[in-house]
């Protein structure tokens, strides 16, 4: 840390800043200083870590009965209006727009609509009238929540899941992972850290995620940002994931950054 008097001042108030208890004006001055002082930023970052660790020492609590159900229902209610609006966006792009990032991705909305349609068929079969009264989409999701919380775990079950390690296009060790769940809704999650051997200068920019069939043809799933080689992304996928054998990440100019061979893993639940 330099001898800049402002740095000395920040030494005095850094702890309060990191704990979030510094009054407004002092906080504004401190933040302005952090914008131009990397040493002080690091100092406060370490103090912030202390604050986080302190909170981490607090004891766990016992949730009230039905808490997880109530919360899941609340999330379902919030998801329902988004479903009803039926926004149409390019796949995988919706949540990249900062104005939309507090909402679920457009693909997910489509997935919810699809689920709602499937649930509607089931609804006809059981002749449940409540759907009209409470709003269909919310009901569909709420029902799913009930099933999840109420259904006893099966004694023995198998479920396919696709997994793969991302490796750099130039070869080398794993730089990320892909999880793909072919169920309904199908969704996938990609995590990369393109910073190791075999990678060029850490990439910063938009990355396109493609799924690859056995014959080499691809389907674009969506885009996500990568900064300094690091990125993570998840999205619903309107496709039969079991038909794909690989995943590929490309830069905005089409350069392949990393690829993954998708392997079908099997979840086997031993009988107890």
């Amino acid at each position: 840390m330099s001898s800049d008097p402002t740095c000395d001042k920040l030494r005095e108030i850094g702890a309060e800043l990191a704990l979030g208890v510094l009054p407004g004006r002092e906080r504004a001055e401190a933040v302005a200083h952090l914008d131009r002082c990397a040493d002080c930023r690091e100092h406060v970052r370490q103090l912030t870590l202390v604050g986080d660790r302190l909170i981490g020492l607090l004891p766990d609590g016992e949730p009230p009965p039905g808490f997880e159900n109530r919360v899941a229902r609340s999330l379902a209610r919030q998801a329902a209006p988004a479903t009803g609006r039926g926004r149409s966006r390019a796949p995988g792009r919706a949540h990249r727009d900062p104005r939309d990032r507090d909402r679920a991705p457009g693909r997910a909305h489509q997935g919810l609509r699809d689920r709602a349609r499937r649930a509607r068929l089931r609804l006809a079969a059981v002749a449940t009238a409540a759907v009209v009264a409470v709003g269909f989409a919310g009901w569909a999701i709420g029902t799913a929540v009930e099933e999840v919380t109420a259904a006893p775990p099966p004694a023995v079950e198998t479920e396919p899941v696709l997994v793969g390690d991302m490796v750099p296009a130039g070869g080398g060790g794993a730089v990320g992972e892909v999880y793909a769940h072919p169920g309904s809704p199908a969704w996938m999650f990609v995590s990369v850290a393109l910073t190791g051997p075999g990678t060029a200068i850490p990439y910063t920019g938009t990355v396109t995620c493609l799924l690859e069939r056995g014959d080499g043809t691809t389907v674009r799933v969506g885009d996500f940002p990568v900064r300094d080689g690091h990125g993570r992304w998840g999205a619903g996928v309107d496709a039969d994931l079991t038909r794909f054998s690989g995943a590929r990440l490309t830069s905005s100019d089409g350069t392949v950054l990393a690829t993954a061979r998708l392997k079908q893993a099997q979840v086997l639940t031993p009988e107890e």
């Binding site: 766990d60 609590g61 016992e62 949730p63 808490f67 997880e68 159900n69 919360v71 899941a72 999330l75 379902a76 998801a79 988004a82 479903t83 949540h95 679920a104 991705p105 693909r107 997910a108 909305h109 997935g111 919810l112 999701i141 709420g142 799913a144 929540v145 999840v148 919380t149 769940h181 809704p185 969704w187 999650f189 993570r232 992304w233 998840g234 999205a235 619903g236």
Partner: peptide
């Protein structure tokens, strides 16, 4: 990430995993 896709099953499991800490 799965939670962000609006999957209700994941919502329950996410809450179940972290509820004791948050509470």
């Amino acid at each position: 990430s799965g939670l962000a896709t609006g999957d209700p099953e994941l919502a329950v499991i996410f809450v179940r995993r972290f509820q004791h800490r948050v509470i």
